[in-house]
Design a protein around this nucleic acid. Structure first.
Lengths: 225, 225
DNA sequence: TGTTTTTTCAAACAAACGTTTAATTGCAAG
DNA sequence: CTTGCAATTAAACGTTTGTTTGAAAAAACA
């Protein structure tokens, strides 16, 4: 029976747990859910197969825990960014660029961090959206529902006259573009024959935010004519 | 040893082959490469495991054949569309919207067709770009190199003063957005709480082409100031 | 110290995987 | 008819998968 994390305060055991989650993250990012094998994870974490089951109960539970560890801080930052922009704007409605900055920048910051540790968050985010497994879909519903509602509300405040259909369609395009860009990010170097630098995350965030903001505005405005 | 397709002219055997490819396509689209199992494919095709090996040599060969069957006609249409626009334009440079129409419309047409047969091409296209397997990457290099070169050349003709870096970066954003949108396409209904209709492929193509064309132009022009 | 709980380990489990083998069927040419 | 090739089949191959077991080690608590 697994122990609750609260039981031991400054326990050394969480080292194993973290090593397991790190290994899970690497394997999941590069090979997807089915590429995560208990043996592969246990080996990379320098521990035993049964130890992984002891801590997480199952493969599903282990991948779940690893996604939770990664996604929740990012979403917290997104809401924080959005809140800051909101309070700075006062009564003024936010521009799309400000809203999508709050959506994209927190991920880019984590991508920049993960690049240093070779953990490749971009692929991880992308993969968690392409995996078909039901439990991942459920996880998205859990993790992104609140986030989605906040961003939709902010966009509705910016475009009070826009139809919900246009709003959702174009937000969907923004999110899909963001995820697709993260997913394809590693191919940029090869694709551009070395002309573009995929390690320049600042360039990525600036160009991506410009791209989706302009596209979004165009999509809303063209329908209101 | 597998037989070449040319051996038998009006053979009934290709029925089995096609049923195998159809089953492969369904499984690959909904569960990815590792979700394609020889047993699962053989069962859905109402034939035997060894029969699949007989026709395609291996699981890899089978998925390869299925991707080839799907992707090559689409890319042929893309080049055809681009060629028609080019010849209609005469000496005039094509607008981004015309270029990306040629990139996106052929896929949307296949999506509309596949929706009728419940084969869901959108997921298939998306998945073939997220799968990490080396053979899929190689396949992309084979299938999309010529296509990419033609579209880059056309964009360079439209924006002769733009830097290659800006051109590649924004084309990368366009392609990533397109793939991301196809990948996320099935979530549109749930995401929008039923407000948007994901079966309206015309709406999809129109909005997507508008979105990426505007984003692309903004990305190119903002750097040239 | 002794006792209890938490954590790790080697070993084994049934199930599913891709692949191979050898035998059989169906059809067309000699 | 018979020979030969194409196609299909059942059965088994060795691996690898997620999971479980029972005992040993480590840590925490008394």
């Amino acid at each position: 029976m697994p122990a609750s994390p609260q039981t031991c305060l400054r326990s050394v055991n969480t080292d194993t747990k973290n090593r397991l989650l790190n290994a899970t993250e690497r394997l999941f990012a590069s090979h997807g859910f089915s590429g995560v094998t208990m043996r592969g994870v246990a080996d990379r974490a320098h521990t035993n197969i049964a130890s992984a089951h002891y801590h997480f109960g199952s493969k599903e539970g282990m991948v779940m825990a690893m996604l939770k560890r990664r996604i929740e801080p990012i979403n917290a930052n997104r809401l924080k960014y959005l809140g800051v922009s909101r309070s700075l704007a006062g009564d003024r409605a936010l521009r799309p660029r400000e809203i999508f900055r709050a959506l994209i920048l927190p991920v880019c910051h984590e991508i920049a961090k993960s690049a240093a540790t070779r953990e490749n968050l971009a692929q991880l985010v992308a993969r968690s959206f392409t995996e078909p497994a039901r439990f991942i879909q459920k996880m998205h519903q859990r993790f992104f529902r609140e986030l989605s509602e906040n961003f939709v509300a902010e966009l509705q405040r910016t475009y009070p006259k826009a139809s919900p259909k246009d709003l959702y369609w174009n937000l969907h395009l923004v999110i899909s573009s963001m995820l697709g860009t993260f997913a394809q990010h590693r191919r940029l170097g090869d694709f551009s024959k070395g002309i573009c630098d995929e390690n320049d995350v600042e360039d990525l965030s600036r160009r991506l935010i410009d791209f989706v903001s302009t596209g979004f505005e165009a999509g809303i405005n063209s329908s209101s004519e």
